[in-house]
Amino acid sequence: MKINTLLTILLLFIATVGYTQIKYEAKIDSKYKSIQLDDGSFKYVKYDKKKQTIFIYNIDNTLWKTVMLPLPKNHLLDEVKLISQTTFNKDEKVEVVYSCLEFTVPDNFEDPNVDYSKVNFTLNVITETGESLLKVDNSNMMEIIHTKGQTKMLIYKHVGESFNNNDETLIYNLP
């Protein structure tokens, strides 16, 4: 009887320990950004500044897609906002929404003691082949919403050069 009880406890202990431990799998560089696609799968994204390219990896760290980001002259990548396969087109191509920025100094800027530069944003929607689906100047924020059976994209656009201006929200109907 004691042996059966001990064996039962030992088997329960081994079964519990075998299935409840947290197991280290791998690490990724802090420069990666995790995203969730519209089908629910997770991916990691890393940007190569020199090649102006994003590399999209599966959760097991295998390369899934490579997309070159066409940045306007003198612009830097601000942020990858969305990666999708069905939000803008119903084909299998990946679509990427990203913002980029440019720092400019006004021509009449003469006082070297004043640190003033203007930031110009651009929001871009492209396919994985680099085809431009949309470009909005003076914007770096967007949101996808679902309402009454429709999908809309809201793009928040900066109007004017100061934060006191009334900004605009551009509304786009998505397929």
Rank of each mutant, 00 (worst) to 15 (best):
V80T: 09
V94T: 06
T127F: 07
D91G: 10
N124L: 08
V119E: 13
V119S: 07
D78I: 02
C100K: 03
E102F: 11
N108R: 08
N120P: 09
N120L: 00
V114K: 15
D107A: 10
V119W: 03
F109Y: 15
T122K: 04
Y98R: 02
E79L: 07
N113G: 08
K93C: 00
F103T: 12
T129F: 07
N108I: 12
T86G: 04
T129V: 11
I126F: 05
E128W: 01
V105G: 01
D91K: 14
V80Y: 07
E102Q: 14
Y98P: 02
Q85T: 15
C100F: 07
P112Y: 13
P106L: 00
V105Y: 14
N113I: 07
K81M: 00
I126Y: 02
L123T: 05
N124A: 08
E92W: 12
T87A: 00
V125K: 04
T104W: 06
F88G: 04
L82F: 09
V125C: 06
K90Y: 10
E79D: 13
F88W: 12
E102H: 14
P112W: 11
K90V: 10
L101S: 05
F109T: 13
D115Y: 13
S99V: 06
I83C: 01
K93R: 15
K118C: 08
G130D: 08
L101E: 04
K118R: 10
E110W: 11
D107R: 12
E79A: 01
E92I: 07
V105S: 05
S99T: 05
N120S: 08
S117N: 12
Q85L: 00
Y98I: 06
V97M: 02
V125R: 05
L82V: 13
F121C: 03
E110R: 13
E79T: 03
T122G: 03
K90D: 09
N108G: 03
L101K: 10
D78L: 07
G130H: 09
L82K: 05
D115Q: 14
E102M: 14
T127P: 06
Y98H: 06
V94G: 03
K93Q: 14
L123F: 07
S99E: 01
V105I: 15
E79I: 03
T122A: 06
K118I: 15
S117C: 13
V114D: 01
I126M: 02
E128D: 10
E102R: 11
P106G: 02
C100E: 04
F88C: 03
D111G: 08
S117T: 13
F121Q: 02
L101M: 15
T127G: 06
L82W: 03
T86S: 11
Y116H: 14
Q85P: 09
F103D: 05
F121L: 04
E92Q: 12
F103K: 14
T122S: 06
